[in-house]
Simulated assay, not measured.
Amino acid sequence: MDRAESEGRLRLARCIVDDGWSLRRAAERFQVTHTTAARWASRYRQHGPAAMADRSSRPHRCPTRADQRTERRICKIRVTRRLGPARIAARLGLAPSTIHRVLVRYRMPPLAHLDRSTATRIRRYERQRPGQLVHIHIKKHDRRPQG
């Protein structure tokens, strides 16, 4: 967050709480809505100047997230059967997007990035130093005069 932004919020909150300005007057002076002014004043009353910083918008919990038992089943089926999200979803009766999200969370690579026989990651172009595979063809033209 921008430092000037948090200082502006602090000045707004102090005008309302400490100096006794009305919400509408402070909101008009700082060019925000009166609900925003009320929000910042309330945070300042409850938590002080430290509350003027932006908060994370990440939710504290996700009630629709699959439970750990289901996530473990998804990972086990992926490792043992080598199935994609759509087929795992059909077996477990879940949405393919849920299966995909779980596989991404557990950093399981897409099937296209795995060797079919060994199920290990395919690592292509492993060389000792960068540019080792660069190969340039040079063709020299004969410089004899015509005639």
Rank of each mutant, 00 (worst) to 15 (best):
R121L: 10
M108A: 11
A4F: 07
F30I: 05
R105M: 06
P130K: 10
Q68P: 09
R123Y: 12
I136H: 13
R58A: 14
P110L: 02
M108S: 05
L92A: 00
V134H: 11
P59A: 06
P130A: 05
R121H: 00
Q132D: 13
Q31N: 11
Y125S: 10
R144N: 14
V104R: 15
R121D: 00
H47C: 05
I99T: 10
D115I: 07
P85A: 15
P109T: 07
L94E: 00
A38G: 11
L10Q: 13
V32E: 01
T64P: 00
T120N: 11
Q146T: 14
C75Y: 02
H34Y: 02
G84W: 03
I16F: 09
I138W: 10
D142V: 13
R123N: 10
Y125G: 15
A90G: 01
D54G: 03
S22K: 13
V32K: 01
V102P: 03
D67V: 06
R25M: 06
Q128D: 12
A37M: 02
R69W: 06
H137D: 13
G8Y: 01
W40T: 04
R65P: 01
Q31D: 14
Q46P: 00
H100P: 00
A95M: 00
M1N: 09
Q128I: 01
I88H: 04
L114N: 11
P130F: 02
T64V: 13
A4L: 12
T36S: 15
R39K: 15
F30W: 12
G131R: 04
G131A: 05
L83C: 03
R107G: 02
H47F: 13
R45V: 06
R73F: 00
V17T: 13
L83F: 10
V104I: 15
G93E: 05
A89Y: 07
Q146L: 14
A38Y: 11
Q132I: 02
Y125L: 09
Q146V: 12
R78A: 15
P85F: 01
H34N: 01
R3H: 12
I99E: 03
M108E: 11
T35I: 12
K140I: 08
A27H: 06
R9V: 07
G84D: 15
R69F: 03
C75E: 12
Y44E: 03
W40I: 04
R11N: 10
L23S: 03
A26H: 04
C15N: 11
G131C: 07
Q146A: 13
F30N: 00
Q31T: 02
G131Y: 10
D67P: 06
M52G: 03
R69Q: 14
Q31G: 03
I122S: 03
R81N: 12
P85M: 02
R129I: 04
D67I: 04
Y125W: 09
G8A: 04
R25T: 14
P59W: 07
A66V: 08
A51T: 08
P63Y: 07
A89D: 01
G20C: 07
H100Q: 11
L111A: 09
A41Q: 04
R91Q: 15
S6P: 00
A112L: 08
H137L: 14
D18N: 14
Y44R: 04
V17C: 08
A51C: 08
A26Q: 06
R29D: 06
C62A: 05
A4N: 12
R82G: 10
H60W: 08
L92R: 04
V79P: 00
L83R: 12
T36F: 06
E71Y: 06
